[in-house]
Design a protein around this nucleic acid. Structure first.
Length: 280
DNA sequence: TGCCAGGCGACGC
DNA sequence: GCGTCGCATGGC
């Protein structure tokens, strides 16, 4: 692990910690200044300091082709932050706190499946359920032997793997009433009935419609999948936290909703209320 | 102990 | 089309 590493220069203001542990995904943990986690079937540990981001467990080629894109490091988030702030000055506190957030380019399946599990659920429990599914149904990850928690050593399970899991079994893993949703989503994705390439190419409203044809995927889950899994930065997921913020801090509506970067602003707000005001 | 959680589907109107 | 309700489970 330690001998295989690379260092990526990162834009000023970028925060790997806010990006990876802010609720966009559920498989990263900060331990002793390192961000440990698995994506694209690879376990790595990341360390950010003023010289850049060191990725342990990946070589330079992998950093360029994979981790750089996953963290969306080539997009000008400084310009985006200024643009959304200009549209909505009341965003200042959130952007000041969480302005280092990038929108992760996750695998569409992982984003979709994770947020089906997330509904009416809390983040620690979502993480637990996903960890158990990875441990039991995921392929062994590259570098998995270095993982500090066993489940981190496994990839997110493929749709095919989950399509063969009985609904009852999902319940045993703590999925509750979402078990039926998972079986439906996994089977219809595995069969090709829902095609991620079609969703990628479709206009955003058509993409929403396609995702919402799945049982257990409503407006909020579709929005999360599109934002975190399909790079649709204009998508603006509204959960109970964001709804409260809209009703208290952004009364009278906000132009943010029409921004091509609404999803980035949404993540600033979510991070801010969760880590400061929100408590819990 | 209750209340709540990155909501959704079913149902009634 | 819109408001309400039940839902599984565990974190706090």
């Amino acid at each position: 692990m330690e001998e295989n590493k690379c260092c990526i220069p990162v834009p000023a203001g970028f925060s790997a910690a806010h990006t990876l542990t802010g609720g966009q995904c559920f498989r990263w943990t900060e331990r002793g200044g390192r961000l440990c986690g698995t994506a694209f079937g690879r376990y790595v540990e990341m360390e950010q300091n003023d010289r850049g981001l060191t990725v342990y467990g990946a070589d330079g080629k992998e950093c360029d082709s994979l981790w750089r894109r996953y963290l969306d490091l080539d997009r000008d988030y400084d310009a985006i932050r200024r643009e959304v702030l200009a549209m909505e000055p009341r965003l200042a506190d959130s952007a000041g706190f969480a302005g280092g957030v990038h929108i992760l380019a996750q695998e569409p399946w992982e984003a979709l499946c994770s947020f089906v599990i997330s509904q009416n659920n809390n983040i620690p429990r979502i993480r637990g359920i996903i960890a158990r599914l990875c441990l039991h149904y995921g392929e062994r990850a590259v570098n998995g032997e270095f993982a500090r928690e066993e489940a981190e050593g496994f990839a997110f399970p493929t749709p095919e793997a989950l399509a063969n899991v009985a609904e009852e079994t999902f319940k045993e893993f703590g999925c509750g009433y979402r078990a039926a949703y998972l079986t439906d989503v996994a089977r219809r994705v595995a069969s090709g009935e829902i095609d991620f390439d079609d969703i990628k190419k479709a206009p955003v409203n058509e993409a929403r419609r396609m995702l919402m044809s799945l049982k257990g995927v409503g407006p909020k889950v579709a929005e999360c999948a599109l934002l975190y899994g399909f790079g649709r930065l204009e998508c603006f997921p509204v959960d109970v936290w964001i709804r409260r913020a809209l009703e208290t801090e952004f009364t009278g509506g906000t132009a943010l909703l029409d921004s091509p970067y609404a999803g980035v602003a949404q993540q600033y707000i979510f991070e801010y209320i969760r880590q400061t005001g929100g408590g819990r």
